[in-house]
């Protein structure tokens, strides 16, 4: 699938602003961004619910931007599932096949297979209202996948589920994607979800793509300050502090988990940069602790440390203590800032 210079304007607001993007066949691709960043609009452009103001969208080499949804070989899993309340679960799943006039026995067989794949065997006779949120989610997935589309679009499908179920569904979705080999385009605002599931992802901000890459690339080499801040937690260092630490005033980011905490005046090994400050705030998070360190009035850095052999007593007592922070220079990532 290829987006070339696609824009979609609503009045003065450019919800999608000159997006160019290639999604490969069989890929699990996420569109990640905060709400209002244009990711859902992009999905709707692919599905055909909305049409671009300018630019072209190609699906397997065929221009689709003028086609209605029913002429496109894509299917969607909706955020609210959009299951038809007046039909049974089986009829919902069979809907696409019924429209295509697949003979009934064959249809029923494929519905059974689908329900088995999403682990809902035997629930075909129920109404959607009799299912739990997680089960409805599976029905929506089965209803879309039964048509064997070339691309499956998922619009924040796990948003309404609780954390445990969401994590379980993430693994299942990924497994199903690998089994069926269909391209998944997955919209989410949850960076952890995008990192867990995607082969590649695009980070959206105010209608534009900030970066496209694998989860590791995006996490370790954020292209912009926005990506650094949105994907995981980052310290953004610029100006005088940046010069003091790295010798150059260019803005860079460093991940909190890369920073070591040492006594003031501790020796600094080769290849590391350092800065001193006072621990301003301590948040004990069980597996690790987050410190906010005040750099003597020039800024703050967030630092996380594994609680390898420290207790909550130890770490909480650290508040107010002076520390020397040091980390490998290679963890300083130059990022572009948008004026």
């Amino acid at each position: 699938m290829r987006f070339s210079h696609v824009s979609r304007a609503f009045g003065d607001i450019r919800a999608v602003d000159d997006v160019t993007l290639d999604i490969l066949d069989g890929e699990f691709f996420s569109l990640l961004g905060p709400s209002g960043s244009g990711k859902t609009t992009c999905l709707r452009l692919i599905a055909g619910f909305d049409h671009p103001t300018s630019g072209s969208i190609e699906l397997h080499g065929v221009e689709v931007s003028g086609l209605p949804p029913y002429e496109r070989d894509v299917n969607t899993v909706f955020q609210d599932y959009a299951l038809f309340p007046h039909m049974s679960v089986a009829d919902n799943v069979a809907y696409g096949l019924m429209i295509k006039k697949v003979p009934r026995p064959q249809r029923m067989q494929r519905v059974d297979d689908m329900l088995e794949m999403v682990q809902l065997s035997g629930l075909g006779g129920r109404r959607p209202s009799q299912l739990s949120g997680g089960q409805r989610q599976r029905v929506a997935l089965a209803r879309a996948l039964i048509n064997r589309p070339r691309v499956l679009l998922l619009d924040e499908p796990l948003g309404a589920l609780d954390l445990k179920l969401r994590q379980q569904m993430q693994i299942e979705l990924k497994a199903i994607q690998q089994r069926v080999g269909i391209t998944f385009v997955y919209v989410t605002h949850d960076q952890e979800e995008a990192l867990t599931m995607s082969d590649r992802l695009a980070v959206f901000n105010t209608g534009r793509i900030e970066q496209v890459g694998t989860p590791a690339e995006v996490y370790e080499h954020p292209a912009t300050d926005f990506v650094a801040g949105f994907v995981g937690v980052s310290n953004l260092v610029s100006g005088d502090v940046a010069r003091a630490i790295s010798g150059s005033p260019e803005t860079f980011t460093v991940r909190p988990e890369k920073i070591l905490v040492r006594e003031p005046g501790a020796p600094v090994p080769d290849g590391l940069c350092w800065v001193e400050g006072q621990i301003h705030d301590v948040v004990y998070l069980g597996a690790h602790t987050r410190y906010r360190v005040d750099l003597d009035g020039t800024g703050t850095l967030t630092v996380t440390q594994q609680n390898v052999d420290s207790t909550s007593m130890d770490v909480l007592a650290a508040r107010g203590r002076r520390v020397r922070l040091m980390w490998h220079r290679i963890h300083n990532r130059r990022v572009a800032t948008r004026a």
């Binding site: 599905a47 209605p68 029913y70 909706f78 038809f84």
Partner: peptide, 15 residues
């Protein structure tokens, strides 16, 4: 009737 029902139906191939 939410708009998403109508979109879902079109998405599944219905004219």
């Amino acid at each position: 009737v939410p708009t998403s029902f109508i979109e879902a139906s079109g998405d599944l191939g219905a004219r």
